[in-house]
C-alpha cells in the first residue's frame, strides 16, 4: 500500500525542519505562498470536474516543471500523509479529480493545482528565513508568469478566488515555539498585540480553544496595498519582537522557578524515553517540554534535529504509512511509543 512516490518522503524528514537556520530551536520554519489564477478559466470553485483536468493539462504543458502528480493517484491515507507533511491543505486532501500536487527541492518547494485557486505555490525554509523562502518563491513565480497568462489587474493586483488573498496573493507564516509566554501566562497579551497589528496567530495543533505543544503559527493578514517585501519585512520584525518577549519570559521563569521547570522537563524526557503507549497529543505536549529543555541548555543529550524528526514521523498517517497500512489508535500509540524510545 501507499503510493511509490512517497517512498523517499518516508525515508527522510523534510529539509525545512532540519534544525538549522536562525533561531532554529524556537522557530521551526518560515513559509511563504502565492495564490495565482489564469485569466481564461473560471476559478476551481466554478469549474466542472472534467474542465479541471483541462486547466491542469494547460498548466503542466506550459511550465518546465515535471513530476506533477494527480491527486487521484493517492489513497486517502497518502493524502493524510501529505497534509501532515504540510504539502497539501486539509481541504484539498478531501478532493479527488482534476487536482495536482508537485514536490521539489527536498520539499522546500511545493505546488497545488486547482485548490482554492488554480495555482498555489509555496516555499519553506528551516528557522527564521523568510527572505530566502521568498526569494525562491519569487523566482519560481517569475518563471511561471512568463508562460502562464495570470489573472491580474493594475488596480487590484493578482485576482484570487477569495478576497482575503487579492493583491499580492502572498501569505507568509512562521511556526514558532512559545513555551515561555504560555508558561508565564503572557500569551494572551501577545495574541492581542499581534491581532491589533494585523497579524493572524493560531495554534499549530489546535481545535480552536486548546493549543497543544506551545506551537503557534503567525502570518500576515493584509495582502493588498502593500508590497511583497513589506509583508516579509513586517512579519520578520514582528517575529523578532515576539522572540524578545519570549526570551524575557524564559529568563524570568528560570530565575524564579528553575527547579520546577527542570523537573517538568526531565519528567517529560523520562516519559518519552520509557512510555509503552503514547497518544499523538501526549507526544506533542511532552516534546514541547523537551524542546524547551534543549533551548534552555538543560537537556544536552537530545539533538534538535532528532526531535524535529520525531515530530514529523510520529504523526498518525506517518506511522501507518511506515508499516504499510491502516491501524487503530491503540496500535498506533504502541508504535509511536516504540518509535520514540528507539529514536530519542
Amino acid at each position: 500500500m501507499g503510493n511509490k512516490k512517497l517512498n523517499t518522503l518516508l525515508k527522510n524528514p523534510p529539509n525545512w525542519i532540519d534544525g538549522k537556520g536562525r533561531f532554529a530551536e524556537t522557530i521551526l520554519s518560515s513559509r511563504v505562498r502565492f495564490a495565482r489564477n489564469l485569466k481564461q478559466f473560471n476559478f476551481p470553485n466554478r469549474t466542472k470536474e472534467d474542465e479541471l483536468d483541462e486547466i491542469m493539462n494547460f498548466i503542466i504543458s506550459h511550465i518546465n516543471y515535471k513530476c506533477i502528480t494527480s491527486l487521484s493517484e493517492f489513497s486517502p491515507l497518502d493524502k493524510k500523509f501529505l497534509v501532515e507533511r504540510r504539502i497539501i491543505s486539509r481541504e484539498f486532501s478531501k478532493k479527488t479529480k482534476g487536482r495536482g500536487v508537485g514536490i521539489w527541492e527536498g520539499e522546500n518547494i511545493g505546488l497545488m493545482l486547482n485548490e482554492n485557486d488554480h495555482i498555489r505555490i509555496h516555499s519553506i525554509c528551516s528557522g527564521l528565513n523568510l527572505e530566502l523562502a521568498y526569494e525562491k518563491l519569487n523566482k519560481l513565480d517569475d518563471e511561471f508568469s512568463e508562460s502562464l497568462p495570470y489573472a491580474f489587474s493594475s488596480k487590484l493586483g493578482y485576482l484570487t478566488a477569495c478576497p482575503t488573498n487579492t493583491g499580492t496573493g502572498l501569505r507568509a507564516s512562521v511556526l514558532v515555539h512559545l513555551p515561555g509566554l504560555v508558561h508565564s501566562e503572557q500569551i494572551k497579551k501577545i495574541l492581542e498585540m499581534l491581532h491589533k497589528d494585523g497579524f493572524l496567530i493560531k495554534g499549530f495543533y489546535s481545535d480552536g480553544t486548546m493549543v497543544e505543544g506551545n506551537l503557534f503559527q503567525i502570518s500576515n493578514q493584509v495582502t493588498l496595498g502593500i508590497t511583497e517585501e513589506e509583508i516579509i519585512d513586517k512579519l520578520h520584525k514582528m517575529i523578532l519582537q515576539v522572540i524578545g518577549y519570549e526570551n524575557n519570559a524564559r529568563e524570568l521563569l528560570l530565575s524564579n522557578t528553575r527547579a520546577q521547570l527542570e523537573d517538568k522537563i526531565w519528567r517529560a524526557y523520562s516519559i518519552l524515553k520509557n512510555a509503552r503507549l503514547l497518544s499523538n497529543e501526549e507526544f506533542i505536549n511532552l516534546s514541547s517540554a523537551v524542546r524547551f529543555g534543549i533551548e534552555l541548555g538543560i537537556l544536552k543529550k537530545v539533538s534538535l534535529q532528532n526531535l524535529n524528526k520525531l515530530l514529523i514521523f510520529t504523526q498518525p498517517a506517518h506511522l501507518q504509512e511506515s508499516i504499510g497500512g491502516m491501524i487503530d489508535s491503540t496500535e498506533r500509540n504502541v508504535k509511536r511509543a516504540l518509535y520514540v524510545r528507539k529514536n530519542l
Binding site: 508558561h183 486548546m210 506551545n214
Partner: peptide, 8 residues
C-alpha cells in the same frame, strides 16, 4: 503553571 498546553 501550564507547561504543555493552554486554554485561550
Amino acid at each position: 503553571m501550564y507547561l504543555y498546553s493552554i486554554i485561550l
